[in-house]
Design a protein around this nucleic acid. Structure first.
Lengths: 238, 238
DNA sequence: GTTGCGGCTTGACGCAAATCAAACGCGAAA
DNA sequence: TTTCGCGTTTGATTTGCGTCAAGCCGCAAC
């Protein structure tokens, strides 16, 4: 397993750097890291390629070496709910290792990507002998939990316009004043992430133009971060 | 801290039984358990009492000994999004221990409740010496992650009627045929959990009556579980 | 150049859920 | 008993978002 991958199943120095920066591995020594990682676990994925499907037996967690991996839930009718999109240095599917062995979501590369898988069993053994990995994993899962709680809050309390505004502010990474950011994916995918239709996303952008937001192609300019923040925090009844 | 609680700050035999059944502690021996738990961590809470507020420094995780604890997110405008409600034997706020030390949600007793707190530091030390606790915690966090992913999927893909139907099915715990269940909270709180208004919840129940659902007070009868399941799985376009 | 295609925008329309508000239990207290 | 308060139901109305569909733009293939 993990052998039949595409082009370059090798760990480049860049990959090593990415791995050593990742939240769940950064506390490990080079020796530990080498013991844990199996270079055969590296996989290259073309755009649109599925890493695993919803319901597949969960045998590994993954680290993104490069590209973007989309986790989503697909219901029997074929509708898709995007749970999250992970980039280089992030890990996902830690949780699946514990959940009766099935992935509850599907993972798809939305751009050409490279990921490294770590077999559950190898990891479990390593955790048993080095508890600090456990802390790192729990921290990583905690972050995922918070991301999901945030998402639920947004879905329940914010309008489509506010969700778009908040998404743009998030791209600006908390900077103040006027910011220019580039959209990380196609607009239709962002729309799905935010739980709305492409048409609604488009209209939302048109409406928040009057709050100082300009979007051209995949470049977005926020004229006044504070004003936009205020709009997001504005509650329903005023 | 933990000392100034109300009536009976003691661990009853019932409490012990609850703790030993709980997911994150069930793998521990009595000796380990005794070493980890501090009876002074037990707190009794009246209905409406806050265990902690959103933004409070996170110094402990909690186990519910009895009652119900609601985790929710409140935005600056005062609107509330209910994240989850925990009952006896469940644990929460594991994640907060790792997240820069602030609770991202508020915790409130919605009925008279008893909880046991476990100090982060004590737990961290215990985890370092007994990795199996780490596995139990990760399993627990995994379950929380799945709960949240499910919730996101429901919010994004299901109508109000379907969410209510699925909620009732969940109360029936997967039983088939005709089931009678009791609603675990006030209807207005269930509505909030499902991300809708009380009025909408009431109307949803009225509408799914024709699918064989009868609700009187806090008793709900599902006439045909399979039919209701089919309704929930029905996707938008048909 | 032309054609075709995929993603984006825009408009017209319908519907599901929110809103506002009134009325209806129903249990607790007087 | 009456009264109060709170949660629930119900009705009338508004609105936000989805749906359907047409048109637009940029781009690659021809």
């Amino acid at each position: 397993m993990g052998q039949h991958c595409d082009s370059r199943p090798l760990l480049t120095p860049d990959d090593w750097a990415t791995l050593k920066r990742s939240a769940i591995l950064r506390d490990l020594s080079d020796t530990d890291l080498a013991a844990l990682l199996d270079p055969r676990g590296v996989r290259s994925l073309e755009r649109g390629h599925l890493l695993f499907q919803q319901g597949d037996p969960a045998r590994a967690l993954f680290l993104v070496l490069g590209g973007q991996i989309k986790l989503s839930r697909i219901n029997p009718g074929g509708d898709e709910a995007v749970v999250h999109i992970y980039g280089a240095g992030e890990s996902f599917a830690e949780a699946a290792m514990f959940l009766g062995g099935r992935y509850p979501v599907a993972a798809e590369a939305i751009v050409p990507s490279r990921v490294m898988s770590i077999e559950s069993e190898a990891l479990r053994r390593k955790v048993a002998e080095r508890p600090e990995i456990a802390f790192a994993m729990m921290a990583s899962m905690s972050r995922h939990l918070k991301v999901l709680v945030d998402q639920i809050e947004r879905m329940k309390l914010l309008s489509a316009d506010q969700r778009v505004a908040e998404f743009l502010l998030g791209l600006g990474a908390g900077k103040a004043g006027a910011v220019t950011v580039s959209l990380p994916h196609e607009k239709s995918l962002i729309a799905k992430q935010l739980g709305m239709k492409p048409a609604t996303f488009s209209r939302a952008i048109a409406r928040i133009r009057e709050l100082g937001v300009e979007v051209n192609g995949n470049q977005a300019r926020i004229g006044d971060t504070a004003a936009l923040r205020a709009f997001v925090n504005r509650s329903a009844e005023d």
